[in-house]
């Protein structure tokens, strides 16, 4: 039981997170011609895009009803939605979502505040890079979740350790992308700005930083996805609220529909956060198209 539930949840979350950046990128680019199409074609396109999801939902509803899968472990979708509605109307869901988002956004926000300046420093100053690179190599190859017990040991079971582990996990993609963004600035632009006699600081502010923004945003978008992934794992241990807690608690009490309701909510939040970040990224890097 435990293993089935766990793997289903894990699969759903990873699949959402992995596929969303790839699918959203061409979608954002398609948006223009998409709007200009004739209504019939538009309906067709919408149908094409939603077909797979619709099929999944249909399977979810019918298979348990036909007893093709055990409805105890996978209740039909309608029951899950019912459970979700009850959770939503009683205010329980809001409470869990609030607790989760607070953790996730604080960790994510702090990661941006820490990793972007640090990445700029490492990317721009060669000595800093030489000094810190070996350390970075060691830690970037250590899975964030492997360190969760360490965080719990040192920072306790409370909010601090949860936010800290999210901060830690989110910092990596931001840090690495910021470093590479600064390093890969077109040398000709730097040369051209230098020929204007710009001081190193103004050169950084006017050329290097703006040139690195799109790459930094890619890191931030990845970190947004990580913040949700790590959040759930962090909430499996010693939490009293939050969607991760809801999922494990429901599973523990055999409230299987509630468990799925939690899973659906978390994947919806993941999708929304990713979409928002994609939009933001697109806005900041529109000059990079073509």
């Amino acid at each position: 039981m435990t293993s089935t539930a766990y793997s289903t949840r894990a699969d759903t979350t990873t699949a959402t997170v992995d596929s969303s950046p790839d699918e959203s990128a061409p979608f954002a680019g398609d948006a223009g011609p998409f709007r200009r199409r004739r209504p019939v074609a538009l309906v067709g396109a919408v149908a094409q895009r939603t077909a797979a999801i619709a099929a999944l939902l249909a399977v979810w509803e019918t298979f348990p009803r036909l007893n093709l899968v055990d409805p105890t472990f996978l209740p039909p979708l309608s029951q899950v939605i019912e459970a979700w509605w009850t959770l939503a109307t009683t205010g329980q869901l809001a409470q869990h979502v609030e607790a989760s988002l607070a953790r996730s956004l604080s960790g994510f926000g702090l990661a941006i505040l820490v990793a972007v300046p640090l990445g700029l420093l490492i990317g721009w100053y060669r000595p800093v890079a030489t000094l810190l690179n070996p350390l970075l190599e060691v830690f970037r190859n250590t899975a964030a979740l492997a360190l969760l017990p360490v965080f719990v040991l040192i920072l306790g079971l409370g909010e601090t350790s949860k936010i800290a582990i999210i901060l830690y996990g989110c910092a990596w993609p931001i840090l690495l992308n910021t470093i590479s963004g600064v390093r890969t600035v077109d040398p000709l632009l730097v040369k051209s700005a230098r020929s204007l006699g710009l001081s190193p600081l103004r050169l950084f502010g006017k050329v290097v930083l703006p040139a690195a923004v799109p790459t930094i945003f890619t890191g931030i978008r990845l970190a947004g996805a990580y913040s949700i992934l790590i959040l759930i794992a962090a909430e499996l241990v010693g939490a009293k609220a939050g969607l991760g807690y809801l999922i494990t608690y429901a599973q523990f009490n055999f409230d299987v529909p509630d468990m799925y309701a939690g899973i659906i909510t978390i994947s919806a939040i993941g999708l929304v956060i990713n979409q928002l970040l994609v939009l933001l990224e697109h806005r900041f890097s529109s000059w990079r198209t073509s």
């Binding site: 000709l188 632009l189 040369k191 051209s192 700005a193 230098r194 020929s195 204007l196 006699g197 006017k206 050329v207 703006p210 040139a211 923004v213 000059w287 990079r288």
Partner: peptide, 28 residues
């Protein structure tokens, strides 16, 4: 050292891609 008494024009233009033509000219 570099100075604004000399202006350099490069083969590959070296325009800042995030700035408009106007803002690129304003850069100097």
């Amino acid at each position: 050292g570099p100075g604004l008494d000399r202006g350099v024009v490069f083969q590959q233009y070296a325009l800042l891609p995030w700035r408009t033509a106007q803002a690129n000219v304003e850069f100097g």
